[in-house]
């Protein structure tokens, strides 16, 4: 059987000088072409987990790690961070920390330069990546002279241009306008069509429900749920216990059923919820 895209076994991790591990015995795997959503309250360990997948934790950000993380079948601990960055693209939670160059063009070229992408190829990729995030025409502008959301778009473009086979995005849409949020998820979906794999962390669950194949719910360093996204988001009671929420349509159907003693089938997407509710009304 072909190797999984990502396979995490018995992963436990502690930052230095902390009593309790921030990740506790994590197990999950995803196949090539799948998109995984990770949700969980602030401090649950989502970013730490994501950085274990590209080796930044514990190779650059130190701490004590047990268990194994494998990407495309090989152990991350046996590969360097530089080598990993060829396979795994990472969009950081705070885009500004990722930006370092004088112009937007150079910003996007920077990551590709580290991968040894030839000059001509770079130019084409820059144009394409800027187009994907709606920043065409901004090539010569300084990254500092951008709005917050534009900076976040730039950080995404820089990683897209590196064309990794696995894409990890840590709250990539937190500052984007609604249209921009949709576009980022669409980009992930398109990558999926090329057999690429994605992990996306987000606090807004509606797009996670609509776009992700599977969802992992992290809470105080432990996996509380790991299942197809429908299954996770229709389990409203457990989500609420974990201080999380389901998409508004799911919350509505559940609340409707409860208030009026009905049993309309729960759904996690807009279209299906409309259909379920309308057909129950007839």
């Amino acid at each position: 059987m072909a190797a999984k895209a990502i396979e995490v076994n018995n992963l436990t991790f502690s930052y230095p000088d902390t009593d309790e591990p921030v990740l506790k015995d994590i197990n999950f795997s995803i196949n090539h072409g799948e998109i995984l959503g990770i949700i969980g309250p602030t401090g649950a360990g989502k970013s730490t987990l994501a950085m274990c997948v590209n080796g930044l934790v514990p190779q650059v950000i130190n701490g004590e790690m047990e268990g194994t993380v494998k990407v495309n079948g090989s152990k991350v601990s046996e590969s360097s961070v530089a080598k990993m960055s060829e396979e795994v693209g990472f969009v950081f939670q705070e885009p500004e920390n990722q930006l370092s160059q004088m112009t937007i063009e150079e910003e996007i070229a920077f990551g590709m330069g580290n991968l040894g992408v030839p000059r001509d190829e770079m130019l084409g990729r820059i144009t394409h990546a800027l187009d994907q995030v709606g920043l065409t025409g901004f090539e010569k502008r300084s990254p500092l002279a951008l709005s917050g959301g534009q900076q976040q778009r730039l950080a995404i473009a820089a990683v897209l241009a590196m064309r990794p086979s696995i894409m990890i995005m840590d709250e990539p849409t937190s500052m984007l306008d609604p249209k921009g949020k949709n576009e980022v998820y669409d980009v992930l979906k398109n990558l999926k069509d090329y057999g690429m794999t994605g992990i996306i962390i987000d606090h807004e669950v509606e797009r996670i429900a609509a776009y992700c194949d599977k969802v992992l719910v992290l809470h105080e360093g432990e996996v509380q749920m790991f299942a197809p996204s429908d299954e996770v988001f229709t389990n409203i009671r457990q989500l609420h216990e974990l201080t999380l929420n389901a998409p508004q349509v799911t919350e509505f159907l559940a609340s409707y059923n409860q208030t009026f003693g009905k049993d309309v089938k729960l759904s996690t997407t807009l279209e299906e919820s409309v259909n379920n509710f309308e057909s129950a009304c007839k």
Binding site: G180, Q248, V249, E251, F252, V274, F277, C281
Partner: peptide, 26 residues
């Protein structure tokens, strides 16, 4: 490039809801 909350989009498509109202919350 805006989108109303998901619940508003939902309510807009439900035929039995009052069309003259815009529902903003569950």
């Amino acid at each position: 490039g805006l989108q109303p909350p998901q619940i508003t989009q939902f309510a807009n498509q439900i035929t039995s809801f009052d069309e003259t109202k815009t529902y903003l919350t569950v």
